[in-house]
Design a protein around this nucleic acid. Structure first.
Lengths: 131, 131
DNA sequence: CCTTGACCTTCCAGCGACTGGAACCCCCAT
DNA sequence: ATGGGGGTTCCAGTCGCTGGAAGGTCAAGG
């Protein structure tokens, strides 16, 4: 099938499918005589797989690893789990970072009247914050 | 003072200070005869201000707005609070997104033995996930 | 005076993961 | 023959830096 159909069936934008080909992540199963990329069911499956992995925040390089494991019948599930565990750590770290930002921001906002006057603890906080 | 000292005193990397000059966010108070950037206390204060704002996840464009408000004696604190509120929304959305990823990833990981065998619910989940 | 080394300058390239657009080709229906 | 909706390539831009190359400047030490 043509790239447009593969895109529709996988849920990956056409441009991104082309990009994945370019970086050698997922290559079309063939090229037509007219130069058109040709994707088979397996390729669409890979595209969907990568879409889901990307949706869980895995980097494109992680996706490459995961795709390789997915295709390796002799893989150890421990290897997959290790990649996932590393990703979970990154997510956790990011959540903690964002929650810390959130707390600070909320504290500053609570103190700010938010009216027409110029006094603003938010600006004061940004100016004075220690560190 | 020279850029290196301004960087040290503000906690913003030298390269970044130069970048902020380039994009017109924070310009040096002067240039020496030798072409060196010269930063005064006020500029260092701005650099620190931007570092803190960036630390709360504000975009560089938001920092531009916040810096302008910071310098505007006739500002309304409501304007500052609005920028902060918008940022808080973004943070919240990102946290929710990450927590959703985290839940999915944890569920998949719990089901995976993580041993030398190839059976892997994580890969299955990525391949089959609906959507 | 010369050298060393730590500064500073500019400019250009790259990161990640796309995304938009231009210029062009191809194919089918009217 | 024409129009529209595919497809192709390549280049530029996003965001916020960051690294590196090639070179100018300056203070201290021999």
């Amino acid at each position: 099938m043509n790239i447009g159909d593969a895109a529709k069936r996988s849920g990956v934008p056409t441009k991104t499918v082309r990009y994945y080909d370019e970086i050698g992540l997922i290559e079309p199963s063939a090229r037509g005589a007219n130069g058109y990329r040709d994707y088979d069911e397996r390729a669409v499956e890979f595209l969907r797989f990568v879409r889901h992995a990307r949706g869980l925040g895995f980097s494109v390089e992680d996706c490459r690893t995961l795709l390789a494991l997915y295709q390796d019948r002799n893989r150890a599930s421990a290897d997959v789990k290790a990649v996932a565990a590393s990703q979970l750590e990154k997510i956790d770290a990011k959540i903690h970072e964002l929650e810390s930002m959130k707390r600070t921001l909320e504290t500053l906002m609570q103190r700010c009247h938010g009216d027409e006057r110029p006094d603003c603890p938010i600006l004061d906080g940004l100016a004075e914050a220690r560190g």
